[in-house]
Design a binder for these strands. Sequence first.
DNA 1: AATTGTTAGTAGCAATTTGCTACTTGCTAT
DNA 2: ATAGCAAGTAGCAAATTGCTACTAACAATT
Lengths: 218, 218
Amino acid sequence: MTEEEFLKNYDSTEFQKPSVAVDLVLFTIRNEQLQVLLTERKQYPFIGKQALPGVFVQMEETLDESAQRALYQKAGLHDIYLEQLYTWGALDRDPRMRIISVSYYALVPDSRIPDSEQEKFFPVEEILQRNDIAFDHREIIRYGRERIRNKVSYTDIAFSLVPEEFTLPQLQKIYEILLGQKLYKANFRKKIADKIQPTEKLTSGSKHRPSRIYRKKD
Amino acid sequence: MTEEEFLKNYDSTEFQKPSVAVDLVLFTIRNEQLQVLLTERKQYPFIGKQALPGVFVQMEETLDESAQRALYQKAGLHDIYLEQLYTWGALDRDPRMRIISVSYYALVPDSRIPDSEQEKFFPVEEILQRNDIAFDHREIIRYGRERIRNKVSYTDIAFSLVPEEFTLPQLQKIYEILLGQKLYKANFRKKIADKIQPTEKLTSGSKHRPSRIYRKKD
DNA sequence: AATTGTTAGTAGCAATTTGCTACTTGCTAT
DNA sequence: ATAGCAAGTAGCAAATTGCTACTAACAATT
């Protein structure tokens, strides 16, 4: 049997297969809190409960593309920091059938969230206290928060949560929220000095000293 | 329609589904090198080439269980450090059909590898130079190495690569291989001091000063 | 015009960690 | 004895982190 023959005869429907979905944890920072987008379920199961937005993986799209599609279809967003998180495979995680969920997380500055989506964000702290979240999505959110918490210190993901132009007090606040602890101003600035570029601009309108506006270097 | 009715009528075969497999990156350290288990493919596709051991995910097993099964069926190993790595979903990663692969990596001390498996390990450095590895498995191996390299500094995974009883020069060597750089003896010992317990035993048989034997604390 | 309140931003030092060199210890083989 | 060799320790310099206190620049109030 040649390879060609083999491939022609291969019956890919021979075995029963699980379904594969992508679920998206879309994080932002608002009101000095880490928040996540939740959608209300319109169908069984968990009708009326809140869940992460998700899509089934189509045969002709990669996982990354599924995640991007979810991001666009469910939140109207493009060109956002997006990274695979973990794949969940418990047998009973969906009562309909066996569904394996590849979770992704995305980070978006509050300023980029469309008006239509504003209402759908909820603080992670609160969500983790609740027990009425659909599926295993609360666990996914917790896991996502842990991932960011780890990565913030050795990557630049914090910049994904801030607009193109930002002040250092803003940026520091992002770091503090993600890490869950205060940082020292002077040390923080030394640390990130090589990642930022000052602009000529200063903030205005506040009733105290204005802050210099920076951009990410490169 | 009640939830029960809905679930009864739900047709889970309505859509075409990808297959889901688990591929295993089994790392060990031998000859002062990071090595990986590869199996020779006996079937199309990539017949004769080397690949990571893998299994299809069965409907009645979780992903972790699939990974453990692969570990046992393909390497005869039980109770090994095992962690999910990443899920690979390129459209053409398998020429037979759409297969989504959930990769796991495992860490095992060289001393625990059964005789029958000894021959199947190959140095990661070499593998990454080659271009005759089946599927996208070379990329998976590279990704696995990156993951360990990151985790070694803020977790205890290095202990998974060493027997229950070990010497500090042994352990330090493991860290050095994983990190890809030399460490300072005295500093290394300060760092891990709270993670280890000395035994009464010393090594013997060497023609120089014997080394104290330790165990992991807890 | 000076004072107060508030946040932005800088100085500087103590404590800890890391980088590095040199030493001492305990074994075997000459 | 002593030479060779790896195990293990001492200790200091350099860099990083923890922390306090300062100065700078604005608006609002006196």
